[in-house]
Simulated scan of single mutants.
Amino acid sequence: MGAEKIWDAKEVAEEVRENGISDIPSSSLTVDISLPLPQLKPHIIGLCKDLFKNWLQLDESCFLVETVSGGITNLLLKVSVREDNAHEVSITVRLYGPNTEYVIDRQRELQAIKYLSAAGFGARLLGVFENGMVQSFIDARTLSPPDMRKPKLAAEIARQLRKFHQVQIPGSQEPQLWIDIFKFLEKASVLKFEDSEKQRMYDTISFEEVGNAVVELKDLTDLFNAPVVFAHNDLLSGNLMLNEDEVAEKLYFIDFEYGSYSYRGYDIGNHFNEYAGFDCDYSLYPDKDAQDLFFRHYLQPDKPQEVSDEDLKALFIETDSYMLASHLYWALWALIQAKMSPIDFNYLGYFFLRYNEYKRRKEGCFSLARSYLAQSGSG
Rank of each mutant, 00 (worst) to 15 (best):
M201C: 13
F193H: 04
F230I: 00
Y258Q: 01
K198G: 10
K192S: 15
L191Y: 02
I268R: 01
F184G: 02
E197V: 13
F207S: 08
F207A: 06
E208G: 12
G269F: 11
Y266Q: 02
P227I: 00
S206M: 02
S206L: 06
A226S: 15
N273F: 07
L242M: 13
R200C: 12
F224R: 00
D289I: 10
Y258R: 05
K250F: 05
I268A: 02
L220M: 04
A290T: 14
E186M: 08
L220G: 02
N273P: 04
M241F: 12
F272S: 03
F230W: 00
F184N: 05
K198L: 15
T221N: 14
A248R: 15
E194A: 13
D281I: 11
A276F: 07
R264S: 01
D195V: 02
E246P: 04
A188I: 05
Q291C: 11
D287L: 12
K218L: 09
Y275F: 15
S283T: 15
L217C: 06
N233E: 04
Y275N: 08
L236W: 11
Y202M: 07
D281E: 11
A248L: 14
A213D: 15
E216Y: 08
E208N: 11
E257V: 04
G259F: 01
A226K: 00
K218S: 10
D267G: 03
R264D: 00
D222W: 06
D292Q: 12
R296N: 01
G259T: 03
D267P: 01
I254D: 08
Q199C: 09
S196Y: 11
G211K: 02
L293T: 06
P227E: 01
F253R: 02
I268P: 04
D180Q: 15
A188G: 10
N239K: 07
Y252N: 09
F230M: 01
D195Q: 08
L240F: 10
K218M: 14
N225G: 08
D292C: 10
N273W: 04
E197N: 13
Y252Q: 03
F253S: 01
S206C: 07
I205R: 07
E274C: 09
G238E: 08
S260V: 04
K218C: 10
A276Y: 11
I254L: 05
N212M: 11
E209G: 07
I205Q: 06
M241R: 13
E209A: 13
D245W: 09
D203T: 10
L236P: 05
F294Q: 03
T204Q: 15
K250P: 01
L284E: 11
L251S: 10
D267F: 00
E216G: 13
K198Q: 14
F278D: 09
F295N: 07
L223R: 12
E194M: 12
A213S: 13
D195P: 06
F253N: 02
S283L: 10
E274R: 12
D281H: 14
L223N: 05
Y263G: 00
E197Q: 13
K288M: 12
E197C: 08
S237F: 07
V214I: 14
E209M: 10
D180P: 09
I205E: 00
G211Y: 06
K250M: 01
Y275W: 13
H271P: 09
L235S: 09
H232A: 01
F278L: 14
F272H: 08
D219R: 12
Y258D: 00
G277P: 12
A231H: 00
E209H: 15
P227R: 00
E209N: 07
Y282M: 05
V228D: 01
D222G: 02
W178V: 06
K288L: 14
